[in-house]
Amino acid sequence: MKVLSIDTSNYALGIALLDGDQVIGEYITNLKKNHSVRVMPAIEALMKDCDMKPSDLSKIVVAKGPGSYTGVRIGVTIAKTLAWTLNIPLSGVSSLEVLAASGRYFEGMISPLFDARRGQIYTSLYQFHNGKMVNQKKDQLLLSTDWAAQLKEQSERILFVGNDLPLHRSIFDEILGSQAVYAEMTEQNPRPAELALLGKDKEAEDVHTFVPNYIRLAEAEANWIKENKEKARK
């Protein structure tokens, strides 16, 4: 089984190739550069290095968000078009779950996060049980101060993972003190090989209807729904 995984949902760009039970290629950058320009050339180059043709692939796995709307759309569009045109299965994995995989050997809870501006973060809570990742809280968008307050209720230690940690670390330090543990610099990028591993045995999506997990409605749509609810009340 040959799996191609693609993650363009946040600043890190990641691509990996699995062949059976081996990771044969992995490409990661953590740059504020244009994913649309770089991701297909990166896939092309990695597959060439690995002597793999598109027709050799047996599955596509993509990070489906949350993250940058544009970023996640680029990855999902490429993944679903490749899966459809090659007629192979597609699986989507939460971008946060991929990041949480960095905490594979951590005993407590894992909180992966991406900054979502204005003090907010995309985050969730995971824990490894017998080598399997278990989701404890769903992917959500909230203020990091509110998140820290929720986590304070937990008895276990929390491992925070993500390149955007420096933006929120002082809040976690202040509210959680020694309950908060921080991943090392080398664990902060979401690993595309982990994405491939998480998705390779996951149930296949319906390619046509597969869309990113944006978490939020588009602003115009949210406002429209609010206005119509108000109108309905009157």
Binding site: M40, P54, T70, L82, L86
Partner: peptide, 20 residues
């Protein structure tokens, strides 16, 4: 619209790449 264009451009690239 850049976001709209990006969907077509990336889908086109995926099809072109997949079949050479």
């Amino acid at each position: 619209l850049v976001g709209a264009l990006l969907v077509g451009v990336n889908a086109a690239k995926a099809v072109a790449f997949a079949h050479g």
